[in-house]
Amino acid sequence: MSNSFVSLQNVSLAYGKTVAVSNLDLNVRKGELIALLGPSGCGKTTTMRAIAGLMSLHNGSISIDGVDMSRTPANKRGIGLVFQSYALFPHLNAFENVAFGLRIKKFSRSEITTRVGKGLTMVGLSHLAERKPQEMSGGQQQRLSLARSLVMEPKVLLLDEPLSNLDARLRLEMRTELQRVQRDTGITMIFVTHDQSEALALADRIVLMKNGAIEQLGTPDDLYNRPATAFAADFFGFENIFKVSHSKIIGPNGDIPTGFAADEGHLAWRPGAISIGNGPHKGIVRGVAFAGEKREYVIDSMLGQIKAFVPADQTAYAIGASISFDLPKAGALSIPETQ
């Protein structure tokens, strides 16, 4: 607790009577890059807006650097926010967009020129200072929006889906850029995303949310390799999840022995962990897609529908083929029942 920089305690948030987030506790360390991850409607954006002060707390408290901010208006919190839509000011050029906050804070003219110059250089836009935002590409707008927040030297920088509006190539570029900026400035960043690969690539720690509560919190390694719940497992690619009782998988048409001793709860396999051709389970190929180095199978079986990715150099099966497959103990993730 002592080293927590942004601290949410028992935070509840609601839109009218609809509760969006309930009793959320979260501690972010100084200089950390945190991802709020989850499907739409999980409360991640709402949580971010509450930290920014754009949404009032229904209950609980938010403090930053040891100061209670629960009642502080958004314009006095010293928090930066990079909007998903960038929210640049169309009537101002790039320079003035970045200078906007500095002018509000009544910085001297020379200070503004220096800071804006630095900000634009940091995101590689110094040659476009005269451009209006609408004359810039999506990636440039994104970086301009980032610079506009960074020149204010915010205590915390919030980013709403920072990469989702960019195409694949720019996304990679921006991802690197964000990491670099974070390293250079040491700023505490919290970003919202629905994309697990984005969270894995960028974040120091990931907060996985579901239905307005934290499902699991941990390092990317924790969440990817040791998801604690069936939901987390599914979110991080364990697409074959089965309920298990007395070492038997509860299938839709009866129980099937796992072949090894398993805890009560769930067993989950990534599609790549399932082997085809040999094994105790029978199924029929319902779909197959060639994806370069692998083939992606959808198989109907006694266990329900199975997804299996098999190296492309192995025997190929056509749709309708009867096959055997194995759910090996080695690739199984056990998710014990939580009491």
Partner: peptide
């Protein structure tokens, strides 16, 4: 877009500002 106003607020403006 209304998020432009929110952006201005986070940059230090009051609502009226």
């Amino acid at each position: 877009r209304s998020d432009m106003e929110e952006a201005a607020v986070l940059l230090g403006c009051s609502r009226i500002g």
